[in-house]
């Protein structure tokens, strides 16, 4: 089980893999995630599903190498197997009745935004995609977005590709110009989603953020993924991962996302040392 069927680099830091997981592929919808472990003693990593094929049983994941666990995952080759791959977890993104949507993705979050845009497009919804990256070398999935969007806006922080600046600029321009979206769906770094929520608030357009907090079991047991939404405690794994972006306490979520940073760097250090020995 869980054989790696395909693997490709989207850029120097981001990898796309297709994993054989028929049980997940049969049910997965845009917005849901999996929890995987690369190896027997590996960490449980939650990753949003980037795409799936119920017929072949393949599930696509896109990840950025950020720590020991994703490093170990990235070491795996086509034909090798992952230790575990459980899902689909979380609630699918709600797409019912939507006619005109702006999908706003940032960085590796675009990998998660793409299946949402794809699903909306397939349902006949008008899709405006706004995707942002730090710099040209980090741009991923441009063609894929173009093929499922009625309009595509691409930004880079340093202006090396597309429009200079962040995703809020084209979004605000559209809203100011009188565009009426049924919904804005935003997926990306917490800071970006916070600013997207701020940008849409004055226009009273419903805005949904896909949250990806730390979690362990992903089934409503550990409480690690809790966040505050509209003053209430919510668990991303069973109540989300999508929430009303105007109600999410992003500052708290940003703090919580760094909770294990001091302990993780230890683990990463250990991992690198492990590989040093091998090489």
């Amino acid at each position: 089980m869980y054989e790696i069927l395909r693997k490709e680099s989207l850029n120097d830091w981001v990898t796309r893999m297709e994993i054989a997981a028929p049980l997940v592929a049969r049910k997965a919808l845009a917005g849901q995630f999996v929890i995987l472990r690369a190896d027997e003693c590996g960490e449980r990593i939650p990753l949003t599903i980037a795409g799936c094929d119920a017929e072949t049983g393949g599930v696509e994941i896109i990840f950025q190498v950020v720590g020991g666990a994703t490093m170990a995952l990235n070491e795996k080759k086509v034909g090798e197997r992952l230790a575990d791959f459980a899902g689909p977890l979380g609630n699918p993104t709600e797409v019912e009745g939507l006619k005109k949507v702006a999908v706003v993705g940032g960085g590796v979050g675009c990998a998660i935004a793409l299946p949402v845009a794809r699903r909306l497009h397939a349902l006949g919804c008008s899709v405006t995609s706004i995707v942002g990256f730090r710099t040209r070398a980090l741009v991923i999935l441009e063609e894929e977005f173009r093929s499922v969007s009625d309009r595509l806006y691409l930004t880079s922080d340093d202006g090396s590709y597309g429009e200079r600046g962040n995703v809020c600029a084209p979004l605000t321009r559209l809203l100011e110009g009188g565009e009426r979206f049924d919904e804005v769906i935003t997926i990306g770094p917490l800071v970006m989603m916070k600013f997207v929520a701020q940008a849409t608030k004055p226009y009273a357009v419903k805005t949904v953020a896909s949250m990806n907090p730390l979690m362990i079991d992903g089934t409503g047991m550990c409480g690690c993924c809790r966040l505050t939404v509209g003053g209430e405690m919510k668990f991303a794994c069973v109540d989300g991962p999508d929430f009303d972006a105007h109600l999410v306490d992003f500052d708290e979520a940003i703090l919580r996302s760094k909770a294990y940073a001091p302990f993780e760097s230890e683990a990463r250090e250990r991992h690198c040392n492990l590989y040093k020995g091998v090489r």
């Binding site: 003693c41 590996g42 449980r44 666990a69 170990a72 302990f263 683990a267 250990r270």
Partner: peptide, 8 residues
Amino acid sequence: TDSETPVW
């Protein structure tokens, strides 16, 4: 020591 999972 060989676990990748951090703990508080």
